[in-house]
Every structure is written in C-alpha cells, then in structure tokens.
Amino acid sequence: MDSKGSAPMGLSSLSDIVAFERTPLDARDLPATSYAALAQAAQAVPHAPALSFFAEAEAFDTPFQWDHETFFDHVTRTANALRQIGVGRDDVVAYVLPNLPEAHLTIWGGSAAGRVLAINPMIEAMQMAELMRAASVRVLVTTDRSSQSDIWEKASAASRDLPSLRHILVCAEQSYAANDGVWLTTDAQPPMSDDAKQIGADRFWDLLKTARADALEFGAPRLSPRPVHCAQGSVNHDSVSL
C-alpha cells in the first residue's frame, strides 16, 4: 500500500518491474520512520488486522489480535510511557523477550522514544550483560519468572551491576495461557513474582496504563544515522537493532 492508501500496482512480469523502478523511492513519498509508517497504516486501514498472536499451535483459530488502530495506540502509549521514565532520543531500551505482543510494542514504541537493543533470549546471561553494558542500556524489558522459560533467570542476572540501568519492566507469559484470544485487562494481569519485586521491577502494562495513546507527548522521531549495538551486529535503519 502506498502513502495515499492505494493498492500497489501488480508486478507479474519483467516489464512491470522496469516500469515500477522508473520512479525512484525518494519520489514515492514513503514514510521516513517506522512510527510514521504505523501511523499511516492506522489511518488507511484502521480495522484491518495488524498483529495476531497465539502461544500454542492448537490455538491458531483463536489468536490474540490487534487491528492497526489499536496497535498504533499501544505503540504510542509505549513511547510516551518510556519517555516519562526518562528515555531520551539517545537512550537505549533493551528487550529480552520471546515473540510476545509486548516485544513489538517495545520495538516500535521504543524506537519512537529512543533507541532499541534486541537481545536474543537464547544466549547466556554473561553475553546479555556484555551487550547491555556496551550499549549503556537505560531500560530493560523482559519476562517475569515463568515455568515456561529461563529468560527471567538470565536477564535478571545480566542486569546486575549495570551502572546505566534505571528500570526493569516485566511481562507475564502467563497472560496468554488461556489461548482464547481474549486480552486481559491491566488489572487482571498476573501479579509480579517476589523475585521481580525484590529487584524493583515494574509491570509493563502498569506503566502503560496512564500513558497517553492519542498522540506523542514529545517531538516525532526522525531517521537516525547511528547504529545500536545488537547481539547479531548493528543496523542504521530508524534507531532499531533487530
């Protein structure tokens, strides 16, 4: 879909490709940032599915789903919430998460507020710590203690003795255990574990609860030429490392 919400021309032959490529990308009025692209989709197709998630294969028919309008609202709320806890344009938000919906909010909301460092949850705690120390991570988003993985054990161990770290936000994998496609309200989210409380973590959704969803409370993000450290290298696209 182009910037005006029109369907793209079909590409079914070499001549179609040649015709398409006669127009350079900088003449196509494409969104300059990921946040602008999400805003465009929310305006063009607000009720089309943007994200579908199911924790188990047998729940394929009952996914948790956000349309583009709702997804963009959550991304905006995430960006504002991160800015409220001190994430500036050059600050780094790291996430150590499986492919939960909260991972996508952290990527796109985090890149609107600051910069994002994706850390592979399969690597060891020592490697996580080295990456976060190199990137001077200010906020860490990870899972709470769970019987489904050892992510909490590794991420919490990696977060010790990081002078730049100010906040740890935890997500509950158990929120999706019912596999019924019904989103839990913020108040119905599973309580934090004692381990998370002891190190001063906050629940991800508690932070978002009071954040504004209809507009950014700071200047819109711009394309950044600077890379962010990542477990698998770095990229220069829109302040996000994947």
Rank of each mutant, 00 (worst) to 15 (best):
M1K: 06
M1H: 09
D2E: 12
S3E: 08
S3N: 11
K4F: 05
A7W: 08
G10Q: 09
S12F: 13
S13N: 12
S15F: 12
I17T: 15
I17H: 13
V18Q: 12
A19F: 11
E21G: 15
R22V: 06
A27H: 14
A27K: 15
R28H: 07
R28Y: 04
D29H: 14
P31M: 08
T33D: 11
A36L: 10
A37E: 06
A42V: 00
P46N: 09
A48M: 08
S52N: 11
F53R: 00
F54G: 00
E58T: 09
F60R: 11
F60Y: 10
F64E: 03
W66Y: 15
F72K: 03
V75D: 01
T78K: 09
T78W: 07
N80C: 09
A81E: 00
R83K: 12
V87Q: 00
V87E: 00
D90I: 04
D91K: 13
V92S: 06
V96Q: 01
V96H: 03
V96S: 05
P98K: 07
N99K: 15
N99Q: 15
A103L: 13
T106N: 02
I107N: 04
A112R: 00
M126I: 06
Q127A: 15
M132D: 05
R133V: 03
R138P: 02
V141N: 01
T142M: 05
D144I: 01
R145W: 02
R145A: 10
S147A: 09
A155Q: 01
S156N: 13
A157Q: 15
R160F: 05
R160V: 07
D161V: 01
C171W: 02
C171G: 03
C171S: 06
Q174A: 15
S175E: 14
A178W: 04
V182Q: 14
W183K: 03
T186H: 04
D187A: 10
A188L: 02
D194L: 10
K197T: 07
Q198F: 10
A201T: 00
L208S: 05
A211P: 08
A211D: 05
D214G: 09
E217V: 14
F218E: 03
P225W: 09
P225S: 12
P227Q: 14
G233L: 12
D238S: 08
